[in-house]
Structure formats: structure tokens, C-alpha cells
């Protein structure tokens, strides 16, 4: 599972949505029921990628694609993704 799939799955699971409706051009404010859900998504992504997000750095984020692009820029440990994917599969 790559970063993109990982992010899509995390968004779908956190916002209680079918994976099929989470598209790159989907706006997060349209997908989330409210701001609490958006905050829940943020802290879930922080925990998944073991990275504390600078809130000023995510001002521009509007769409699912923006989230993927932002996370791709982070110095994340790809091994964590692989380990989490294997844990889920098991």
C-alpha cells in the first residue's frame, strides 16, 4: 500500500465513507460531517505517520489530493506504512 492508498483509506475510515467516494478532487469540507471529524482525521494522519503537523503548513489544503501531496512531502518512514499494512492484513 503506498501513501496515496494509505491516505484514502484513512480518510474513508475516519469520515465513515465508502472508499469509492473519496476522490482526489473531493473537498474535505464536503466529505466531513463537521469540523470535529476534520480534526479527528488530522490527528489520525499525525498518528499514522508519526508526524506532528504544523497547522500553518496546512492552510492551503482543501482536497483529498492536497492531503496526499502534503504527506508525500513529509519525511515519513515508509517502513511504518508497510508494517501497518501488514498488521492490518493479518
Amino acid at each position: 500500500m503506498d501513501v496515496r492508498d494509505f491516505v484514502l483509506t484513512a480518510i474513508a475510515e475516519t469520515l465513515d465513507l465508502p472508499l469509492a467516494v473519496v476522490r482526489d478532487d473531493s473537498k474535505l469540507v464536503d466529505l466531513a460531517e463537521d469540523s470535529i471529524k476534520l480534526f479527528e482525521l488530522l490527528i489520525r494522519l499525525e498518528n499514522l505517520f508519526s508526524y506532528r503537523v504544523s497547522y500553518e503548513a496546512i492552510v492551503h489544503i482543501e482536497t483529498v489530493g492536497d492531503v496526499i501531496a502534503y504527506i508525500e512531502t513529509l519525511p515519513i518512514d515508509r517502513g511504518v506504512l508497510q508494517a501497518t499494512t501488514q498488521k492490518k492484513a493479518a
Partner: peptide, 17 residues
Amino acid sequence: TDIERIRPCTTAVWEAC
């Protein structure tokens, strides 16, 4: 102003905010 629906949320949300 803000309006919210009252419902349970994950512990992680409250721990963080």
C-alpha cells in the same frame, strides 16, 4: 459562532484538543 451536533467522539479527539 459555532453549532455542533451532540454525539460521542473518539477519545483521541478530546486527548488532542
